[in-house]
Design a protein around this nucleic acid. Structure first.
Lengths: 143, 143
DNA sequence: TATAAAACATGATATTAATCATATTTAAGA
DNA sequence: TCTTAAATATGATTAATATCATGTTTTATA
């Protein structure tokens, strides 16, 4: 469903959303351990996220990564499409190019609703939304 | 969501369901082209399916692959779990081991329904069901 | 019962995704 | 303005998945 990379991206963003502020930036290496993702790998992903304004960063001593208020409004779909590309989630389950509502593949009806509703939720839900669930005890981010 | 291999398996089984009978067996190489999967690769997958009684086969001259009535009753989930293993579909979206209803990860509520309903459909739907959709023009299998 | 046509089994290679390493740039503080 | 701590950029390596190749067994038919 999601690549490792986009899972890691989501975890890193959520970790930053919970633990960082502009005044309390977090180093790549200090994100790596709690979310259980190799240090150099998460650094690379964070750079990509930073380049696309999904996370904020500051170089030099005292620098690190954090989320500003704008960043927190990012819909989850933006994180996923940045890393995995647009059509991993929307393409045909059987990878048939010609599959659409007019010309549905044998599994189309089986998955179309499911897929559409998942994408809709990813568009409607922001990082901020997930965080408020965590703060209110509806869900849990390990560590 | 699904590996290439399980997509190929589904396509091959559907192709056999539509085009083969016990009297009209089909060679691995003749399945390969229409479903657009490398010859040696689909052969390997067909052998795995055959070993687990998802497709039927006969060696020797006049042999080939086909589906018997029993095979056509196979639920789609059986094909997918055989190739991809059991937990590709059910494991946590963020790959967190400790994620369940009691201890949901931040994305759990977002995907749980979606995932559960997809798996349910895969359990309830058989090869035969998909084929009757094709025969009645509700869906299309290329070639 | 010999031959040929097919699946079957196993292992090798290639491609892609995941991970790691290193050199460069930026910014803070002495 | 020098040093150091951080992100950034780019490329190399490793591991996993996908693909290919080759030899073995089975079965029909002459």
């Amino acid at each position: 469903m999601l690549s490792n990379s986009s899972k890691y991206a989501l975890k890193a963003v959520l970790y930053l959303a919970v633990h960082s502020t502009m005044e309390k930036k977090i180093l790549a290496k200090d994100i790596s351990k709690p979310i259980n993702v190799p240090r150099a790998y998460i650094a690379k992903i964070l750079q990509e996220l930073s380049r696309h304004n999904i996370v904020s960063s500051m170089r030099g001593p005292g620098g690190g990564f954090y989320l500003n208020e704008e960043n927190k409004k990012t819909p989850l779909i933006d994180i996923i499409s940045l890393i995995d590309g647009d059509n991993r989630l929307t393409s045909c389950v059987l990878s048939l190019h010609k599959c659409d509502n007019e010309n549905p593949c044998p599994m189309h009806h089986l998955v179309d609703d499911t897929k559409a509703s998942f994408v809709k939720k990813l568009k409607e839900t922001s990082v901020e939304d997930l965080i408020s669930d965590i703060r209110s005890g509806k869900s849990f981010l390990p560590i």
